[in-house]
Design a protein around this nucleic acid. Structure first.
Lengths: 239, 239
DNA sequence: CGCTCATTTGAGGAACTTCAAGGTCAGTGG
DNA sequence: CCACTGACCTTGAAGTTCCTCAAATGAGCG
């Protein structure tokens, strides 16, 4: 069992003293409701954390997911499935500001930390009943859900394209989601990305070097840090 | 443009006199709310149709989807995307009893009739505002949405498997969704299925004959009608 | 430095696609 | 009733893409 580490119990570190980036991003969660102090107080009562997880720790198997919604504060969370043969698929990545929830029990996906991460646990029942009383909360939830659906559908579309296309599309998408910074610091491991794209790490690596040879990206100065150079060229690859 | 027919305006046939199967399945829509006459009346007021479409007609491009939700009464509806190169992907199939909605405008998916079909148009705004007042309606909507998400995620998982696995999984899934009848009458064209599975029709055909040779399915008596024979064997293929 | 782990590169093989031809079936007109 | 047609499905052979296995290179760390 190469992937046994995914099934070890997570070491949970409760963190009562809010640290720097945490407070910032936690604000993100309540941000949608600013100007409504009582609502924000109610939300605070529903949430627990931030809880810190280290890379590759299992955050939650389906039991917990039924009870709690996750809100990613920092780092990257992945939902994935490892089948008996040992092959693994990453279904989705969640970045800071994303909700992790609405995971269907039938699929029995495992929610894991793709990098060191901090997440908020939000009582699902509480949030849903809050949503039934407050249209703004309901809207945020609906939008989060439809967003996740749209992402999944885009993922489906991606999977029937060529390897180079998949990688190029993944990188631009990640770059967009992370806020269009000058450099793209890819936070997750190549293994995770390969499993997300349905490729081997070798094919992923080859695709990267191909894109580099085409002049579309540069590795500067280190491996993990990429520079997306020619956005028009990307359009070409992606047809 | 081989796929130009997808973009021709649909010939819409309004059908006021409810025909046989229609009335039955339309009842399915309100069934979740039986015992609540006033609610059912409200729902009836929101819905328009059933409207009949012929195979390959475009039911709706994104503008309409923003305003209406679709409820499939008979036949099969597909949501798909054709990219400039001409390659097409089928993102999802909707069977009788399914809602079609929550389609993200960014993806600009086209909603089309995969077979001759009858659909109900339900005013989205009306249903959503109804949901905000009635928890049962809200629950049905939430369940429909999370169901669609689960389906999309399962689709993602499927796409990184072998061709034979994809076909076997598709057939059993379809068999389940259609109510586990003795025979499986595959309603959609092989082309649609291949585009759904990210395969060519040739590979799909070869996979079918492989499964037949393995004794897992039989074509009896015609091509379209399949008999899933060895469910235990299916489990083997799907590992 | 020397270890480990992650990434890259290469060669060969398997899976899938492409191109091309043949087959089946329902509808149509003689 | 039968041949003809066109749409759809099946089969075969060659080509491409991606995977597998193996080895080399590079990065991080004590």
């Amino acid at each position: 069992m190469a992937n046994l580490d995914f099934y070890t119990a997570p070491f949970v570190e409760f963190n009562d003293t809010k640290i720097f980036g945490t407070a910032d991003s936690a604000a993100h969660f309540a941000k949608a409701f600013e100007g409504n102090a009582s609502l924000q107080r109610t939300l605070s009562a529903l949430q627990r954390g931030p809880v810190r997880f280290y890379r590759d720790q299992v955050i939650s198997l389906d039991e917990d997911v039924a009870e709690y919604l996750l809100f990613v504060v920092t780092g990257v969370v992945r939902s994935c499935k490892t089948c008996k043969s040992g092959a693994r698929s990453v279904v989705s990545f969640y970045l800071p500001g994303d909700f992790v929830g609405w995971v269907d029990a039938k699929l029995s996906l495992s929610i894991e930390a793709a990098t060191d991460t901090e997440v908020l646990f939000v009582k699902r029942r509480g949030l849903v009943s809050l949503a039934s009383r407050d249209a703004r909360v309901a809207n945020v939830l609906l939008k989060a859900t439809t967003n996740e659906l749209a992402r999944a559908q885009e993922h489906v579309l991606l999977m029937s394209k060529s390897a180079k296309f998949r990688v190029a599309n993944f990188l631009t998408d990640l770059w967009l989601r992370l806020g269009k910074a000058q450099y793209l610091d890819v936070p997750m491991s190549h293994g995770d990305i390969a499993d997300y794209l349905g490729l081997t790490i070798e094919t992923f690596s080859r695709s990267i070097t191909d894109l580099e040879r085409l002049g579309l990206i540069a590795r500067v100065p280190s491996q993990r840090r990429l520079l997306l150079q020619n956005h028009f060229g990307f359009r070409q690859v992606m047809n």
